[in-house]
Write a protein that binds this DNA or RNA. Structure first.
Length: 567
RNA sequence: UGCCCCGUGGUGUAAUUGGCAACACAAGUGAUUUUGGUUCACUUAUUCUAGGUUCGAGUCCUAGCGGGGUAGCCA
């Protein structure tokens, strides 16, 4: 049973679900000789987001840990909201995350079985056809504090129920005219037990069963039964289904079928992010983002396009843990997970996002030399490359300050800085146009300080900055993404405002960067580090051949920014 | 308002099930560093409150306080 510690994570502790599963498998007689069976059961009515990733990692992870199985099952019981498009995107996302299901299944596969079981419950007096409309049913249900009243149709004979239910199936009645309800207890303190609707009439085309059915089961009357049919041992879902568990149990018990154990965990809340399908949809339809796969979206497809790796998302899900307390995860944890994955593997390049020119006045005009640059200091086998160096270069505008604060280790008038892989230079003159804007900086370089040369060791400077050779620079589009929301909890908007008012107006900034030649040749999907800037990914959708567009996945940690902000 | 669930450093999770409160991240300090990155070291707690049981309580009991869920023919 030590497979858990064999997987990549470092001796992590068991979560409460693992503890319970191990207890169940060891003690429950009906589970003896069986393997752990879980499932990931999305409704195909939207795109998967990072919150689903938690559930996916949990369910598939459990199966892996205990040598069991995990199915992908679509809970497609509401044809008006579902489509093939969503089915396909969900399959893509699950596989991209690195998981392979044991079986691919649909709740709609079980409509026939569910119908037969409905008939069984009617025969046994556990279900009845009700003629109350939606509004009347709400009245009869009672409230949180008052018990409900029995439906006037509750005591119909088995024969009448059977007849009516058959005719419901045959399409004799319009939508909403009747429902099949479980006969439980209208005075139960748990509202889910007040004779819940099992089957409703819906003359709608289903993306898989077509027009075969005009009655469709409700979630409660499909989910547990599907679990049961598939031999699921542990049915793991989020906390909002907690109050449904007694009903889940009631159906299995009353039907006398295999009875999986439902366990609930807290859904993920991420700071500076909204996660509800409704709000994500609103962001898309109202064009606050470019689509479901906009790199700022918390959808799997958005994170993928942004440049997040499956490994980083799995790592993230491992880090946040699983519990029953509804917590708020700091988005920094997400950002760190991609830094952690990319740091040892992403090749480094120099790219200047906001260029300012420097002229090395003592460097011979027309001379050019090649400097050796390490591809990745974290990777001993990463090798090196040659980059051209000459009299005119670009550096980052932020790396020069005319009147810098203390502890500014970069270029300043009269100050020195090292050009990465090159020389130490000194800024002698700030050249401005008539409007007072800096046009370029006149600097001198010290030949003795060339990187790697024995004489270079003699002198040290505090700062090293990146640069790009002016004459041979390539120009590429770079999209600088930031958080989509300004507020830690965007949903908490003040009176009269909504989460949309918390949108960050600068969540994306597009710039043309001057970069090393090598960067212009990167293929879509490639992930690199721009030294001192961050990790970037070549956009898969908008890049043209020989014209990559870079998405900033995440900046590097920036302790200078912290120091500067304090001052 | 009824019922259900949950409260452990700033954040997220642990604690051999009643026996020295631990890990990661964040924050801070220092070291290393030709990325203000990486790496390394060190620093940060009345376990929501009040009672109770016990030799001993984060863990069990009671009450309070706080947070979440729940009144679709959605899932």
């Amino acid at each position: 049973m030590n497979e858990k510690s064999e997987s990549s994570e470092s001796a992590s502790h068991k979560n409460f679900i693992e503890v319970e599963i191990e207890k169940d498998m060891a003690t429950k007689t009906e589970l003896i000789g069986k393997h752990v069976a879980t499932r990931f059961p999305p409704e195909p009515n939207g795109y998967l987001h990072i919150g689903h990733a938690k559930s996916i990692c949990l369910n598939f992870g459990l199966a892996k840990t205990y040598g069991g199985t995990c199915n992908l099952r679509f809970d497609d019981t509401n044809p008006t909201k579902e489509s093939e498009e969503y089915v396909n995107s969900i399959k893509t996302d699950v596989q991209w995350l690195g998981f392979q299901w044991d079986k691919l299944l649909y709740a709609s596969d079980y409509f026939g079985q569910l119908y037969d079981w409905s008939v069984q419950l009617i025969r046994e007096g556990h279900a009845f056809v009700c003629d109350l409309n939606a509004e009347q049913m709400r009245e009869y249900r009672g409230t949180l504090t008052e018990p409900g009243k029995n439906s006037p149709y509750r005591d119909r004979s088995v024969e009448e129920n059977l007849d009516l239910f058959t005719r419901m199936k045959q399409g004799e009645f319009p939508d909403g005219a009747r429902t099949l309800r479980a006969k439980i207890d209208m005075s139960s303190p748990n509202l889910n037990l007040r004779d819940p609707v099992m089957v409703r009439i819906m003359h709608a085309h289903h993306h898989r069963t077509g027009d075969q059915w005009c009655i469709y089961p409700m979630y409660d009357w499909a989910h547990g039964q599907s679990d049961s049919i598939e031999g699921i041992t542990h049915s793991i879902c989020t906390l909002e289904f907690e109050n449904h568990r007694p009903l889940y149990d009631w159906f299995c018990k009353t039907l006398k079928i295999h009875h999986p154990r439902q366990m609930e965990f807290a859904r993920m809340n991420l700071s500076y992010t909204v996660m509800s399908k409704r709000k994500l949809l609103q962001l898309v339809t109202e064009k606050h983002v470019s689509g479901w796969d906009d790199p700022r979206m918390p959808t799997i497809s958005g994170l993928r396009r942004r440049g997040y790796t499956p490994e980083s998302l799995r790592l993230f899900c491992e880090k946040i843990g699983v519990a029953r307390f509804s917590s708020l995860i700091d988005v920094i944890v997400l950002e760190n997970s991609i830094r952690e994955h990319l740091n040892p593997i992403a090749p480094r390049y120099m790219a200047v996002l906001d260029p300012i020119k420097i002229v090395l006045t003592n460097y011979p005009e027309g001379k050019e030399e090649l400097l050796e640059a390490v591809n990745n200091p974290e990777d001993p086998n990463g090798g090196s490359r040659q980059i051209p160096f000459s009299r005119e270069l670009f550096i980052e505008r932020d790396d020069f300050m005319e009147t810098p604060p203390s502890k500014f280790f970069r270029l300043k008038p009269g100050g020195e800085v090292r050009l990465r892989y090159g020389y130490i230079i000194k800024c002698n003159e700030v050249v401005k146009d008539s409007d007072g804007n800096i046009t370029h900086l006149n600097c001198t370089y010290d030949e003795q300080t060339k990187s790697g040369s024995p004489t270079a060791i003699d002198r040290k400077v505090k700062g090293t900055i990146h640069w790009v050779n002016a004459r041979q620079a390539s120009h590429v589009e770079v999209r600088l993404y930031d958080r989509l929301f300004l507020s830690e909890t965007p949903e908490d908007a003040p009176e009269g405002k909504t989460f949309l008012d918390n949108i960050n107006p600068d969540s994306v900034r597009t710039v043309t960067a001057v970069v090393e030649h090598e960067l212009a040749k990167q293929e879509p999907g490639a992930r690199v580090q721009f030294e001192r800037n961050g990790y970037f990914c070549v956009d898969v959708k908008d890049s043209q051949s020989n014209a990559p567009i870079f998405n900033r996945i995440v900046t590097l940690k920036d302790t200078w920014a912290k120091i500067a902000n304090k001052a």
